[in-house]
């Protein structure tokens, strides 16, 4: 019974998603995101060089040429290769962080909205405190205190995104818990966790999918910003924000070093945002 229910939900979600074809904006977004996902998956195949291979001959003239299409950086590393490998960095850190933040945020939001009372008050108070920090200040404190690494960046994103997701899920739970099918489930004597995760959460999925997609975009920006501020992944990991930071001072001589990674991160974030807008559009139709 539960199995076929889940199967039905998945099919319906997929049917919804294929409606995206009717939103040109959403399709552009989907194309950009799919492009970068493919680039990240096939990085070893399509990358012309390793991300940290130094071509010392290229140091004489690092500008784009036939052997290095996007040029090289100040250490003779191929920019195209680093942009390609950099997509792997972003597309592992962001999904992991967003997924964990969603798991915790959904749980806390469901608990707060379903039980209300002191559980709600406690979760709200803690969320309020975290949300009172401007996000960038929290990022700086967390990374300064615990040091820059992929794991710490993921933890910082989770720490900052979770209360926001909790808020959204709580709000939707407060609304959905008054529905008749919830009363029916309670009457059947279903356990509270079953009601929360099988009855409430799937019915809140529309706005949550859109938010998750937008959040992937924000998280991509956050990873890039941390890299740009010198708080990102330690070198020599290829990281778009870090590439811009390393070459920003040289922009007046070799603008290509900063332009290509800046264009890469922009196209990925624009992709997530347009995809989210397309999905919002089709979910508002009914």
């Amino acid at each position: 019974m539960a199995m076929s229910d889940t199967g039905g939900t998945l099919t319906r979600t997929w049917a919804r998603l294929s409606l995206l074809r009717e939103s040109p904006v959403g399709m552009v977004g989907a194309a950009l995101v799919v492009f970068w996902v493919l680039v990240a998956i096939f990085a070893p195949v399509i990358s012309p060089y390793g991300p940290n291979t130094n071509d010392l001959d290229a140091l004489v003239d690092p500008s784009p040429n036939a052997t290095h299409w996007f040029g090289t950086d100040m250490q003779g590393r191929d920019i195209l290769a680093r942009v390609i490998w950099g997509s792997r960095t972003v597309l592992t850190v962001a999904p992991v962080a967003v997924a964990v933040a969603y798991a915790i945020g959904c749980l806390l939001g469901l608990l707060a909205g379903y039980y209300r009372g002191w559980v709600d008050t406690l979760i709200n108070r803690i969320s309020d405190i975290i949300l009172s920090f401007p996000a960038i200040v929290l990022y700086i404190i967390v990374i300064m205190r615990f040091g820059p690494s992929a794991l710490n960046i993921i933890l910082a994103v989770i720490f900052i995104a979770t209360p926001q997701i909790t808020r959204i899920v709580r709000g939707m739970t407060l609304d959905l818990r008054e529905r008749e099918y919830i009363a029916a489930a309670k009457m059947r004597g279903e356990p509270a966790l079953y009601i929360m995760f099988v009855e409430i959460l799937p019915n809140a999925r529309g706005p949550l999918i859109v938010d998750a997609c937008l959040r992937m975009g924000y998280t991509t920006i956050a990873i890039g910003v941390l890299g740009f501020l010198g708080l990102g992944l330690p070198p020599p990991t290829p990281d778009w924000g870090g590439m811009v930071k390393d070459s920003y001072a040289l922009m007046s001589i070799f603008p290509h070093m900063a332009l290509f990674p800046a264009a890469a991160i922009t196209s990925l974030v624009v992709g997530f945002s347009l995809l989210a807008d397309g999905m919002r559009e089709i979910s508002m139709r009914d």
């Binding site: 975009g217 624009v270 945002s273």
Partner: peptide, 12 residues
């Protein structure tokens, strides 16, 4: 689109 461009990228 404008909101999706990270500040350091639009700076570049």
């Amino acid at each position: 689109v404008t909101t999706s461009v990270p500040e350091f990228a639009s700076g570049v």
